[in-house]
Design a protein around this nucleic acid. Structure first.
Lengths: 207, 207
DNA sequence: CACAATTGCTACACACGTGTAGTAATTGGC
DNA sequence: GCCAATTACTACACGTGTGTAGCAATTGTG
């Protein structure tokens, strides 16, 4: 375990009210996840990262499941808020292609701006607790359903070809997530403009 | 550890030559991975799955890293062989759209036919050993490069719009993998014909 | 400035995985 | 049928994570 050398007493960590410690521990957990991956997450690792001992963590959370669930609540809220900001509140339907391109640009910039929030979502590994995976998956599904609706509308409005909106929504989301992952793992690989330009080109080709 | 009740001697597992045991252990490891995930893989779990004790495993492999590396060799070879079978050996360039649709159908059927092989590749989690991840990623990259070349050729040949072939190749691969994952986790969700029809529709829309 | 509430630490018992030394069962060849 | 080579098992020492009981330091309040 973490340094059980008997004799020298460990210097006390700053005394901090529970509510603050809670946030610190969630931050520590996120840091560990982003830096070392989900596999490295343990009560012990989080305590170490936060500079306290394990009993301090147990004083705030029941166990790792409880802690990660709470973290997910927080990160889910942040991600959804950012996503809502990136999506157009009052879509200007007069130029659908431009609308799509602008929205894509805002989403790219959103991920670039806060990778800590997006990494655990876009790079969510199977080792994540099943409960957490299910909740992320539910959000994803929800987003996909909205996207499907938009597509049906858009395809009709734009006079494009008759396509299976559900499948296309799956495909679009898969592409979004793929490039989201690239933005996280290798941010300099593709410039934002290049990605947006390709989207615009594809839309134009679909006349 | 696994049942250390002293007294009753464990019945001997069938005596088997090393070469056979090696394959059995690889099969056991794959079973554990597919059923319980990478996190559940351990020398102990594999030994249990194979119905032997840990020292038997250590008699065949140095450690877990060695075992998983060997498994990856085997599965990589199987997957690449299946993929090669699915791709057209002598592409008929007279009807590119049909060629793409037929190839897609064969790939879908390939994944459906042998999910055990494809799950560890398509659902490869971050908890996988870095070395193994790197090798799978190298194959993916290789495939993507070939795809990029085909696209440049195809886009020119087909008289489609000028597009960023590299980005489009990324996107296509992301979509392929996404539907591959769906085929594994929820095989009945989309019928093969429906997927192929959507591809055909998209191609047609891109005239 | 003392003291009680709060916060943090040490140390333990337990669980599970690793890797190995020593021993026992099996089995094919004589 | 015996025996030596092969294969498998038991039992141990060790490492790392969990969860908790009991004690120690800190701090703000009277």
């Amino acid at each position: 375990m973490s340094s059980t050398r008997t004799g020298a007493r460990r210097p006390y960590a700053a005394r901090v009210p529970v509510a603050v410690r809670r946030e610190q521990l969630l931050d520590a957990a996120l840091t560990v996840i982003v830096r070392d991956g989900y596999d490295a997450v343990s009560i012990d690792a989080i305590a170490r990262e936060a500079g306290v001992t394990r009993p301090v963590v147990y004083g705030v959370f029941d166990d790792l499941r409880d802690l990660l669930g709470t973290l997910l609540d927080r990160q889910q809220a942040r991600a959804l808020a950012q996503l809502a900001d990136a999506l157009p509140p009052v879509p200007d339907l007069s130029d659908p292609d431009r609308l799509v391109a602008d929205t894509a640009r805002r989403m790219i910039e959103t991920v670039r701006a806060d990778p800590m929030t997006w990494q655990p979502i876009l790079l969510a590994p199977s080792s994540m607790p099943a409960q957490a995976r299910a909740r992320i998956e539910a959000d994803r599904e929800n987003f996909r359903i909205q996207l499907t609706g938009l597509l049906e509308l858009g395809l009709a409005l734009r006079g494009g070809p008759a396509l299976d909106a559900e499948i296309v929504a799956h495909a679009i989301l898969a592409v979004l997530e793929h490039f989201g992952r690239i933005l996280l793992t290798d941010p300099d690989r593709f410039e934002t403009d290049r990605l947006v330009a390709t989207i615009a080109g594809l839309l134009q080709a679909l006349k």
